[in-house]
């Protein structure tokens, strides 16, 4: 904290990153109970950190799709040669992107086809910022069928049925649950 007892930039950033350790975490949270100006700074920091994380994940995804040309000219010919085969094969196993968001009321709106990997796009609006979250998929009976991280690799292909995707904080706290119906696309 600064000489006036307010949070400094690094403390605010660590709090937004969920990286504050005790005793700093206690000091920060107790201060935020009383100090409106520091709360405002944390709000802005949360927005910035969350935006940078999402953008960084997008950058990484773009980098993986676009190989670096510099210094790799000798691989370009091989890549072109194999492109036809890869394109044909990747179409059969390309992950299916499915957006999951919490909804009011009953029913499950998210759908995905059976038998293909699932690229989960989870709505983390309003959740504590984290570099990554642990994800667990369970079937209708609550049995775990897959675990991973978000952002992270696609979920494995699953048979038709009703599933629930659970999002956990790095500390293991359950933050959110989404419903997902896997089967033939109905729409």
């Amino acid at each position: 904290m600064d000489v006036e007892g307010h949070l400094v930039e690094e403390e605010i950033e660590r709090y937004s990153l969920a990286a504050s350790a005790e005793p700093e975490l206690s000091q920060v949270e107790e201060h935020l109970l009383l100090c409106a100006s520091c709360r405002k700074k944390v709000e802005t920091s949360d927005v910035y950190v969350n935006s940078m994380r999402r953008a960084a994940a997008q950058i990484r995804a773009e980098e993986k799709r676009a190989p670096r040309w510099a210094g790799m000219a000798f691989l370009l010919a091989a890549a072109v040669l194999l492109a036809g085969v890869i394109l044909i094969r990747s179409n059969a196993t390309a992950p299916f992107a499915v957006s999951l968001a919490v909804t009011r009321g009953v029913g499950i709106n998210a759908q995905a086809p059976a038998g293909v990997p699932l690229a989960l796009q989870l709505d983390v609006t309003g959740l504590p910022a984290a570099a990554s979250y642990r994800v667990e998929m369970v079937d209708r009976a609550g049995k775990q069928v897959w675990t991973g991280t978000f952002p992270g690799r696609p979920a494995k292909p699953l048979p038709a049925g009703i599933y629930f995707v659970r999002l956990y904080s790095p500390a293991g706290d359950l933050l959110r649950e989404y419903g997902l119906e896997i089967g033939p696309l109905l729409k």
Partner: peptide, 11 residues
Amino acid sequence: LEMGLRLSDRH
């Protein structure tokens, strides 16, 4: 499903 609760039931 008809009685299931959501962790964060926000529209």
